[in-house]
Design a protein around this nucleic acid. Structure first.
Lengths: 175, 175
DNA sequence: TAACGTTACGTAGTTCGTAATTATG
DNA sequence: CATAATTACGAACTACGTAACGTTA
């Protein structure tokens, strides 16, 4: 049983019509038909009676409909509760880093950063070693410096210096 | 988000260890790692902190764990209710239970039972603690005994003992 | 260095869409 | 015969397993 099947089922049950449900779900009608069939096969119960005018829930289908809606609602709640927990930082930043860093550590660092701060879009710029410190002082850059296993980030949407530590592959951002 | 991911997540969260969870789930460990990662990516939240000793739920992970379990339980109930409808059990039964049970657990249990077995009418009787075991032996009663978090039902329309387990608000009836 | 998690990549199984077919009022 | 559902089949996608790698106590 899959979420997709539950969503398909619920839509079909509401419209009592595979063709229209397929349109609303933006899926081909045979694909929808197949998924409903798979669901029925797994449950071992026929959920709809088919006819040339459309479909209609069986008694078992009516019972299942209640549970399907509850399940989908519960899943949405779970998802939202986790999402709502994430760090509310939003914005975009540009990261300036030495070429050597860009080619070695940066990809993984950004991947980790991206998981921790999904609301922040990151752009990458490359800077020369001799200009590195100068760039660090420019407030409209996020500059990135690796020293002693620690990353210092100067970000531009607030005049503030953040420290980005990598501890056990986890990225911790502190002000 | 898929049911498989929720089941994987719950198992990992319980064991705090990807390798052992993979064994129990009978799936290769990298596959499990990948699914957890996909889930985290979709939610936009890191669910586990990784280390060389295993994994540990983040705060967001703890929140999501609750919702994931609820969702899985609800899905199982939906599935069973549809399946149970196939289970054409019909009839009426009388449930005998201690007054304390009648006033506390019984309402929810009967509600769940009613969804699972819509064809069965239930009547409630109250019995005294000192007569409880005697009633249990009478074949024309459904008697209900709570012990070790498990409900045993002795039902009368077949000479058979069913076991009714409540696992996370879900009612499982086994013979 | 042992235990554990991640990355890389080829394979197998699933879902989808298009087109043809069947069924019914 | 018009409307709606099913079957057939090839293409695209995704999860999986194996193997190699990275990390930390």
């Amino acid at each position: 049983m899959e979420f997709r099947q539950l969503a398909y089922f619920v839509e079909v049950a509401r419209l009592n019509n595979l063709t229209r449900a397929a349109e609303r779900l933006k899926v081909a009608q045979p694909a929808l038909s197949q998924q409903i069939r798979n669901l029925e096969r797994e449950l071992g119960v026929r959920l709809f009676n088919r006819s040339a005018r459309g479909v209609a829930l069986t008694e078992a289908g009516k019972i299942f409909f209640i549970g399907a809606e509850k399940t989908l609602a519960e899943a949405e709640r779970a998802k939202d509760s986790a999402k709502g927990f994430n760090n509310q930082l939003r914005g975009k930043v540009t990261v300036g880093a030495l070429e050597s860093v860009v080619q070695t550590r940066l990809p993984r660092m950004l991947a980790t950063f991206g998981i921790e701060y999904p609301g922040i879009k990151v752009f990458i710029g490359r800077i020369q070693p001799d200009r590195f410190l100068r760039h660090l002082r420019r407030a409209n850059w996020i500059s990135l410096l690796h020293m002693n296993g620690m990353i210092n980030i100067f970000h531009s949407w607030k005049i503030q210096i953040l420290r980005l530590e990598f501890v056990r592959n986890r990225c911790i951002m502190t002000s």
